[in-house]
Each structure stands twice: as structure tokens, then as C-alpha cells.
Design a protein around this nucleic acid. Structure first.
Lengths: 344, 344
DNA sequence: CTGAAAGCGCTTACAG
DNA sequence: CTGAAAGCGCTTACAG
């Protein structure tokens, strides 16, 4: 265990025959040093294997070189876990290219979430943060403003002053889904939605009803906690109504699978008797029988873009809201013409 | 945006009427300050809302207050993503109780993985790290020793000097699985394993064959990349052999589901013609039809224990290898007596 | 274009 | 038990 002392800028300065100040300028690409000197310093740093000490940098008032992500503990729903993991993957990819580290915190409950952001700011652990799953009257927005922590919203709904966001067009995707179902001949559609306080739930629900109204469909939506259990209950109740809806749109993959199970239990065929659409495509949707028609988006790319946006913000560049690639509808085996329609 | 200056120990010292040094001693629970003074300092700190500046602490040579976790980018296998997310959840829970932050890096490829650990050490970004998915001749082990970064292994196989590990008894779980299948009357069993360079794959494969030999079963195992596609091919080939194996043990949930699909495709019933066992239980195993018999472990608890172990190590406490709660076999609908046996 | 110096907020021997 | 001071490795005005 040779604990060789890590080289500092003093070592680099000595080797290059300049002062510490010059080294700092050269290494940070700042003016104030001739090109020849810069090259000499750079090769000295490389030769010594110098790496910046992030603590020293942070203490000198500049960048910490890390950004934070606080996740509410995934509610054991398959979909959420996969989505988060891919989102984090994408975020990391973008950050590591810029040598920025990711400080991850997984917490339970809103209070812990707010406390986490406060701590990240108070201890100067990060330069900025990413915000996901925005809610109605989200307390985090005020806290971030209070502690002056730069942030980028992933998803969200509204244009917030000082809080740029990277979003994808959930409303448009929902319009596509409803139009697709209407084109197949469905007249009674139900949306099994997630938590009503999540803005993305609200966006989808609003688009669902607006499009259904526009097309003259009878639409209904029910909120759940995103769990398979809740979906089971809701589906059972909804499919017992008369006239029975012929298409169900679920807010995640696991609820869709649970819903299919209930339909089968009730002696209904998917898609002959009931069509099923899942939101957030995953391998699960491809694996089950019938495979599930789903709304698909690239979570990793979404995360990458959000991270790049945050870096731009931290660099002092002007950043505006950014619309990411829109989710697409992937048609598989769980949707088709309603049987009543066929009978005609 | 009131950017009030964050209180420092100088402010606390001033308010409590003592020197900065005393504040440091009091706040860190060190001797060298009377109990009365300590209390005065503590309440002054609380009144000012003081929080330690981690950069300053790190620069003074003590703890950074963060540990690192580098994950090889999950190979888009459902099981891995869920397992990692739950592992991270558990790690975080343990760390946050001790106000230690988690530095997460998601990388692709072995080279990037090694580079990530080097960087974490060189920039003094973390006090220690957690190591998962240990492989044969894992290059990370040497690197960690070289950069003198304290680490705890999650899983693993061997007792490594200076690298304590938290592990669960995969071999024992595999023995249980094989004995269970033998008790049902199976005589020809196949293991569809993951990557052969992963130690946990090797452990399970070894236990699989040892137990099968012991019980006089005919056993075979095939390595894959953990993907559903690979499982499809392997299962198709294996189920075409004569005599046909009557039980398959898959190394993750997604491969098990893919395998069931192949069996159905070939006109075989699960479990009447082929029994299927999955490793790493997940909601997926409960959702499919038939539901999957699976080996289940608490990834979150596993992560918690590993994090606690690392903290103990960093505290300078003596830590030994720790055996976590053993995985359990959850019997569901995908396993039963082989039909040939029934016919007897 | 370059050098010397102060300062970031803490910790830690070292004197009293 | 307490105080004054040096030092961690950087950045950044400030002089030359």
C-alpha cells in the first residue's frame, strides 16, 4: 500500500517552472498565460498524473463538480424502477463526459425529500440538482429558490421562472392513443391513472378527456397509487359496469399487466373484448401474452438531455425549456377492434 | 433570492464566546472541551443553523462524507435494473442515517469502471466504495489496493485480504432448489446461467452440479449474457434434446419468462412437461401465468448491510466478512412433478 | 504575461 | 480545559 502523495498544483508549478497561479489559469483554460506556457504546464500536469482536488476547488468558491438527484423511494412498481434506472444511466452518461459526479439520494416521503435538497445546498455538496416527478404545489420549488440552488426540472408541466425544464409531449402521446382507439372503433374508454398529485398524471388525464370529448367518446378516469393491486381493483370494478368499456389505458406497465389478468379472470379476451394500452413501455410489455401495446419513450436519452441542460445552466449559458423527443405508440397484441363493433 | 451567507464555525465560535478550535472539538464529539461548553456550542450551532462544509472538512484531511458506487451499465435486463435500484435504495437508507452521501457512477465497460474508481480516489471524491458483481481476476481489486481506497464487496466469493464482504448464501439456495426439484421427481435438470466470468454465476453453477451429482441427477448448464434472447435460443435447443430435461433453472426472471414462452411455443406445458425456476424474484414472477417459482432475496436489506459495513470500516472498526440473510425459495405455479413421473 | 499573497472553512498539533 | 496559528489545495484579485 504505497500511499504516494497525490500531486498538487504546487508540484505542477515546480515542474513547469511557473507559479501556482499560472498553473490554475492554464488548467482552467483561462486567459492570462501564453500558449507556450500553457502547453508546458499541461504536459507537466499530465506527466505527474495531476487531478484536481475537488474539495479544494469547492472551498475556493467555484464548482464542486457534482450535481444532485433526489428520488422518492420507488414505490416497488416495476415500471418506476426501470424508468429511474434508465434515467440515471442517461444522466450519468452526460455527466461523466464532463467529469461531473452524481450525488444520488433515495428518500421516503416528501419531508425527507425537501430536507435532502436543503442539505445538499447547505453543505455545498452539489452545484445544482435535477427535479423529477413534480407535484401540485411542489414544496421543492420554493426550497430551491430559497437556498439558491440551480435546478432543471425533468418533466413537469409549467414554465417556471428560473427553473428550466426538459419535457416530452405526454399530452400529444395521449392524443395519439385516444385517436388510435377511436379509429379502431372504441366508444367507451377508461384511463387507470396514477397519483393525482403528479403533474404528469394530470397532463395525461387532461389530454385523455379532451381528446375523448373531441371525438365523442365516453371517457372515464380513475386515480391509483400506481400499484398492481390498485389496478386489479379498479379494473374489476370498471369491467363490471354496463355498458362495459372496450378499452383501458393504464399509467404504467405493471398496472396494465394486472388489468389483463383481471380481464382473463372475468372471462374476457384481450383484445377481442377489451383492448389494453400501457404507458412507459418496458421489456415486460414485450414478454407477456398478449404482448402489450404501449407508449414508449427513451428514458436514458431523457436523462442525458436533462443533465446536459443542467450543465449548461451551471456554465452560465442561457437555457430555455427544452422539448425532448416525443413518446411513441408501439402497437402490439393487446389492442384491436372491439367485438361489439365486429359483430355489426 | 436572499443569498444569506452560510454560517461557519467562526460564527458559532463568536456566538458561543469560544475559539474556532473548541467549536470543532465540540461538534465532532471530541475530548478537549467541558460538557458545559459543549452544550453552549451545540445550541449556538443549532440556533445559527450551522451545517458542516464538506469541502472544508475534506480538505482538512478528514472525511469527505461520501462513499462511491460504480455500476456497470445494466444490460437492459429487467432483473438487473430492479435489483440495482433496490440495492441502491437500501444503501442510501443506511447512508442517510449517518449523513453520508452516495456518489453514483454508471459506466459501460470494464475500462470505464476501473477509470471511475481511479478518479474517485484521485479527486478524493469519496472515503470508500462498494463493489458489486465481482468477476474472475477482477481488475478493480488491484486498483483499489493501489489507490488505497477502503472498500466493501457486495456478494463475491473469496475471502480477500483488506476487502471485507457482505454476502448471501447463493450456494445454499441453489442446493435447496436442486433438492426441491429432485424431491418432485425430476431426473434431468438444466441450468441456464448468466455470464461465466461473474463469481456469483460460478458459485451457483458449482452448487448446481455438486448437488445434482450428489442426488444422482443428470445436470447440464449453459452460460448466457443474461438476456431474454439468449435464454430463448438456449431453451429451444435444450428442450429439443432427447431425453428432454424436465426442469430448467434460470439465472434471472426475464430469462425464465422467455424460457416459458419457448416451452409454450413447442407445445409443452409448464409445469406439467417442464418445471421452471427463476433466480431473483420480482413482481414479474408473480404476474406471469403460470406464476414463477423463484429464489428470492431482499436486495434493499443487502444494500443496507453493505453500507453499514463500509461505514464501520471507515470508522476504523474491525470488520469481518458478514453473511447476510439467505435467499429463500418461493414456490409458485411453474414447478411440479414431471409428467413422465406422473405416468408411472 | 507572470508572481506573490490572501482567502475559502475546517482540523489539529502546539502552547498556555 | 482553552486559544492562537498553521495548513489542507485550490482560485483570484492585485501588483509588477
Amino acid at each position: 500500500m504505497t500511499t504516494t502523495r497525490r500531486p498538487t498544483i504546487a508540484d505542477v508549478a515546480h515542474r513547469a517552472g511557473v507559479s501556482k497561479g499560472s498553473v490554475s489559469y492554464a488548467l482552467n483554460g483561462l486567459p492570462g498565460v501564453s500558449e507556450a506556457t500553457r502547453q508546458r504546464i499541461l504536459s507537466a500536469a499530465a506527466a505527474l498524473g495531476w487531478q484536481p482536488n475537488s474539495a479544494a476547488r469547492a472551498l475556493s468558491g467555484t464548482r464542486v463538480g457534482a450535481v444532485g438527484l433526489v428520488l422518492a423511494r420507488p414505490a416497488r412498481t416495476l415500471g418506476a424502477e426501470i424508468f429511474y434506472m434508465q434515467l440515471v444511466s442517461g444522466i450519468e452518461l452526460a455527466l461523466s463526459r464532463r467529469s461531473v459526479a452524481l450525488m444520488l439520494q433515495v428518500v421516503e416521503g416528501v419531508a425527507a425529500e425537501v430536507a435532502a435538497y436543503r442539505r445538499l445546498a447547505a453543505q455545498h455538496l452539489v452545484d445544482g440538482v435535477l427535479l423529477t416527478d413534480l407535484r401540485t404545489d411542489d414544496p421543492r420549488v420554493a426550497v430551491l429558490a430559497e437556498v439558491a440552488l440551480p435546478a432543471v426540472i425533468v418533466g413537469g408541466r409549467d414554465r417556471l421562472p428560473g427553473l428550466p425544464r426538459v419535457w416530452s409531449d405526454d399530452a400529444g402521446a395521449m392524443r395519439t392513443v385516444v385517436r388510435y382507439l377511436a379509429a379502431l372503433g372504441h366508444r367507451r374508454v377508461v384511463r387507470v391513472a396514477g397519483r393525482s398529485d403528479f403533474l404528469h398524471t394530470q397532463i395525461r388525464t387532461a389530454a385523455f378527456h379532451a381528446t375523448a370529448d373531441e371525438l365523442g367518446l365516453t371517457a372515464q378516469s380513475v386515480n391509483t397509487d400506481f400499484s398492481g393491486l390498485a389496478a386489479t381493483e379498479v379494473t374489476r370494478s370498471v369491467l363490471s359496469e354496463r355498458p362495459r368499456p372496450t378499452a383501458l389505458v393504464f399509467d404504467n406497465d405493471i398496472m396494465a399487466v394486472a388489468g389483463c389478468g383481471v380481464a382473463r379472470e372475468m372471462g374476457l379476451d384481450v383484445p377481442a373484448d377489451v383492448s389494453v394500452v400501457a404507458w412507459d413501455d418496458s421489456i415486460l410489455c414485450e414478454l407477456v401474452h398478449p404482448s402489450l401495446t404501449a407508449v414508449s419513450r427513451d428514458a436514458a436519452a431523457f436523462g442525458m438531455h436533462a443533465a446536459e441542460h443542467l450543465i449548461a445552466l451551471l456554465d452560465g449559458r442561457h437555457v430555455d425549456d427544452l422539448q425532448d423527443v416525443s413518446p411513441t405508440l408501439v402497437v402490439r397484441g393487446s389492442t384491436g377492434r372491439p367485438s361489439s363493433d365486429r359483430a355489426v
